[in-house]
Structure formats: structure tokens, C-alpha cells
Design a binder for these strands. Sequence first.
DNA 1: CTGAAAGCGCTAACAC
DNA 2: GTGTTAGCGCTTTCAG
Lengths: 367, 367
Amino acid sequence: MTTTKDIAAQLNLSVSTVGRALADDQRISAETKFRVQQAAEELGYVGNRAARLMRGERSTVIGLVVPDVGNSFYSTVAHALAETMNAHKRQVMLCETGDDRQAELRHVRDLAAAQVAGVVIVPTPKPLTAVARLLKTMPHVQLVRRVPSLGPHWFGVDDRTVIHTATSHLLELGHERIGYIGGTRDIPTATKRLAGYSEALAAAGLSSDPGLVQLGPPSSASHGAAAVRALRAAPDPPTAVVAGSLQITRGVLDALHQDGTQVPRQLSVVGFGDEPGFSWWGPGLTTVALPVHALATACGVWLLHRLEAQTGSGSVDEPFASVSPGTLVLRGSTAAPGSASGTTRRRQKPETPRRPPGSERLTDLPA
Amino acid sequence: MTTTKDIAAQLNLSVSTVGRALADDQRISAETKFRVQQAAEELGYVGNRAARLMRGERSTVIGLVVPDVGNSFYSTVAHALAETMNAHKRQVMLCETGDDRQAELRHVRDLAAAQVAGVVIVPTPKPLTAVARLLKTMPHVQLVRRVPSLGPHWFGVDDRTVIHTATSHLLELGHERIGYIGGTRDIPTATKRLAGYSEALAAAGLSSDPGLVQLGPPSSASHGAAAVRALRAAPDPPTAVVAGSLQITRGVLDALHQDGTQVPRQLSVVGFGDEPGFSWWGPGLTTVALPVHALATACGVWLLHRLEAQTGSGSVDEPFASVSPGTLVLRGSTAAPGSASGTTRRRQKPETPRRPPGSERLTDLPA
DNA sequence: CTGAAAGCGCTAACAC
DNA sequence: GTGTTAGCGCTTTCAG
């Protein structure tokens, strides 16, 4: 590795002159600057970030802590953040927790050791207290999931409303036995979603039947598959189901496809999140689309703003939270229970598409 | 930020004693060690990586340079690598190029400045020469795409064979007019894939009709959509198409779904890569599955091995290249041209699934 | 067993 | 316009 010293030696200059020349300092003669640039290029000089960091310069690295980038939800987040940070000459350090608290702690500790400028974190359900302590020492925002102990700054979706809307849609179609497949109650997000479901039922004057609720790991497609089969196999099966996470949706779709279940005739389905392929599934999946990319971008921009503001007057530290409503995308997987259309219509008959292309209806949710 | 100095002051010790205690050095008394550990915990001490780096310690960070993590192909790569590095207490720095050479250079320069231990890179089509120069100074491997100027180490798939097999499958079914939708020739990978297509045709004694080949940006779904529509609209349209990239496959599927094209009756389709959802598309997509996760993991493991070997005798630097064959997954989207089954069979009739679940045939390709 | 000192690469005072 | 010096936090001689 070439250093400023090397290039100083080669040109018979002092290191400081070289440093100043590279920093384009006013008081260095144009000629010296040129010679230095030349030599630097020639020797393949690359400034040493570690040294600069030690001198107190702020790092340009942002930590991103997510459960799993393999999950397309989080890969979208990673992409959006990388994009945003890239535009501001910053780097992203990728950390996967696999929803394991120990792994989360290790990563946050590493980020602290690396002196990162800031952190965007999708926390595990119940982070260790050490994580909270460490995060206090660096600017950070929570994304999607929100754990109060980690701080007030958060960007996410309105989970309660999202599932409420999904459930209400089915209620409006006339369904009375609506199943819900979601994450376990230890995850705050999952609790809110479950509440949205229950409240929608309550608002319609229906009592919620515990037999219609299946909770399990939210990041597991197999939970979704098993749960929808369990619901269908029950003595008094639901006429519709709401999926409470992206992976659960995947599992449900796979199971129904494999079992040859007729949707929406035998069962109406509302998904969570909108992925490439959800529109081709059976009659097209009615689902709640979430503005993941926009959310992550907003989160990144906010963090950047905070970092820059912090450099000046350190007063822009007021708690901030942002919620995005989802968007209900109406496709073919939902219909009135036992409806005529559901029984007579051939599912996905290619000659006569149910709707012309691009005619999907989008319904904005109330904030 | 607490430093060793702070904790030394608090305990009336010297920094060196504290350092040794934290490093669990032999010659420090158990009691002193304990007190130091205590104080460190209490003050929330986190070792400063930058300082250690300056002392010549190797970084634990690995750079990952990809076109776009939003692309599920690369998000799988990122996941696999994060997982692998995580298991070895290493971090991953995520860099997106968007297939832009300037962005690629900036990122590689940043990685060099950060003194990363190694780099896994999916290079842009024609990297700037500065990128090659920089990469020479650090251990690196190319992934998927291969550019000779960047070095000999590479992990990828056998692109030629993959598309050759896809094409041969259609030829065996009796197709004679087979379209190919791929990436432009400036991308090495795309060139090899095109060669696989041409060679398969040649081997069957068919001359390749330039009108059946549509080249464009490989990461653009809209290219795939436009291309398949163009092929179908041509005076003498193909009876089958092969898609030459993941995003192209997505575009093709979307277009055919929107247009209500009957697959495989009107057109047989072979995809590239296997994604969640490809099995539900229409009659199920016949496609070439690629072992992306395994490939990226192998790549990561190799790099780790190299890094550790390098510490000892620096002789394990022999060129290495690994190719993985794909796996042809046979589903419903391919059939003989104008075949009886294609014309009479109802597409994806749910009551009687074409095949029982899990009965997809997998065909291993020859290496 | 512990302390003092040097130095990694860089920059910001402080000379001249 | 350029050189000298000091010090960021840590490890690692070399002395006690």
C-alpha cells in the first residue's frame, strides 16, 4: 500500500505538503500539486480511511441490520438504502440477524467498533439490552419493526390498518368466517396486525373464533402452508383467509396451488405485500401492497439529514415516526362466499382474461 | 467513546496493562484482568477497529459488488455471502453498481480505502482499467460474470450449457422455430448464452434465423416483455422461446399473462432461473434452475480459505475457476408444437392438477 | 507482573 | 509555499 510518505519521498517533499496537495489546499503551488497528483496516480495511491477515522473524521459507512436479505421484502430495503447512500457517497454495511438476538448484538457491536456514521435497523423481536446501550451511542432509525427501548425514531407501515383493511374487504364481500394466519404475539408488528383483524371483525359485530387464528413464525413460508391446510381441514372451515406476512403469503399460495384448491370459489384469499408473480397466481392475488422501496428511501434520507444536521447545531434530535398506509390491490382471489361468479367462472381462462391488462383496481387506504 | 486510556485512568493503570488484560495476555494477574473487564463493561468500552487497522491488523470486512440487490438473483447472493461471512465473524460491505462503470470504480476504490480483507465482485460488462489495478492489490473473486482482465478467480455457471440444454429440450419436443431473448453481446455471459442457443440449433441441423433472436439489456424485464411481443407479432412467429436472463424471464411471463397467450399451445416457454412463483405461472414454468445460493456460498468459502491460507505461506494463489451446471426443471410451459395435449388440455385446471404435487421432474445437466 | 515509548497514516496547528 | 511536530487508539517492543 502506498502512503503519503512514499509519494513524499519520491518527490523529495514533506508528507504535509503531499497531504495538502491531495486535499487541494490553497497555499500549494499549482506545479507541486500537479507533480503530487501525478505521482499519486502512478503509485496507485488510495487514501487510508482508517487513519482518517482516527483523526476524528466521521465515517461514511451506514450499517443496515435486517433479519434476512434473501427475503425480498428486505432485499428491496437493502436496494433502496444502497441507492440512497450511494448517491451521497456513503457505503452500506450489510448485517443479517436471522432474527437471532445474539447475532444482532454481535453486529451492532461490530458497527460500533467500526465507528459507522449511522444505523438503520429492523430489530429482532426482543433485542438484548446491550443492543439498546450501543445504539444510543450512534445515530440510528428503526425500520418496519419498532421496539421502544431502542429509541423513538422509526419508519414503518401502519400494520393495524393494513390488516384491518384486508379483513374489512372480505367482510364487505359478505364473508363471516374469516381465518387469519399471522406471526406470534412476541413480535410487536404481528400483534398490531392481529389487532387489525380482530377489530375489523368486532366492528362488523362478529366475535372472533380462536379456531380461525393460526399464529407461528412470520418468516416461515411453511408455517403459512401448514396453517392454511389446518384451517381448511377444520370441522367448520373459513370461507376466506387473510395472510399476515409476506412469507406466510408465499406458503399459503404454494399450499393452495399444490392442493388444487379453487380460489375464490372454495376460499377467498388476501395476501400481504405485493411481489412479482402474485398477479399470475391463480386468478390473481388480491393483496395489500406496501411501499417498501419508498419507505426505506425515506428512512435513509431522514438518517442522512440527521447526520448532516448533527454536524452543525446538535438540536435536531426530536423523536420522529412515520407510518405509511398500504394499498389494497384487488385481483381475482377474493369474491363473495359461494358467489355465482366463483362457481361458474373458469379460473384464469386465458382466451378471455377476467379483466383487461392493467385494469387492476387500486384502493388507497385511509391513513 | 471510551478508550483504553479512559479505563486505564479510572483504574490507575497504564494503557498497556489494560490492553493486555483485554487481550487476555498470560502475564496479567487474574485480579487485574477482572477489574479491567469490569470497568470495560461498565464504561461500555468497544475496541476501535480503525486503530487496530492502523496497527496492521487485517480487516474483517469483505466487499460485495453487485449490479443490484433488488434483483432476487443477487439478493440470494448477498444472503448467502452474509451468512457465510457471519459464520466466520466477518462483515459484508454492500456495493451496488447498477452496471455503471463509474459507480463500480468508486465502490472498488472505497473498498480499497477501507482496507477490506477481500472482495466478491459481479463485474460490469467492461470495467475501467483502474478497477483491475485496484483489485490486484486485494484478494478477490469474480462471481457469475467473468472478465479476464480482473483476474483468474471466478465462480459461475456454465452459461453456454445452460441455454444449450434449454434449447435442446425444445428441439427434442419437435420445435423448429425457436426464439431466443437475451442480453446484448457486450456482456460476456450473454454472449456465451447466445452461443449455447446457436450451437444447439446447429447441432440439430437448423440454421439460426436472426429474426428469432432479440437482444437487449439483460436486467430489464421490459425488454423481455417487448421482445416476446415482437417475436409473436412477426410474420412467421416462433413456436417456442428461450429466455436468457432472470429479468427477461419475468418480463416474458408478465407479457404472456397479460396478453392471454396460451402456453404451451400457442407458444412453449423455457425460463432462466427458478424463482418463487414460477411454479404457479400458467401451467407452471419449465426453466433452468441455477444453484445461486450454493454458488455464492462456495465463492465465499473459497475466498475465506484464500485469506486464511495467505496468512501462512503465500503460495496458494493458483488460478481457480468453478462452473456449475444448471438443472432443467420440467413443468407445463413446454410441449410439442401443436401437440394434442397442448390443444385439448385445460390450462391449470385446479380440480385435476396436471401432476401431483412434488412430482416435477428434474433433469441434471451434464457438466 | 506492570509501565514507558514508539509508531501505524493522516491532518491540523504552529513554525519559517 | 513548504517543513516540523503532535496526536488520534491501539499494540508491541523494551525496560524495569
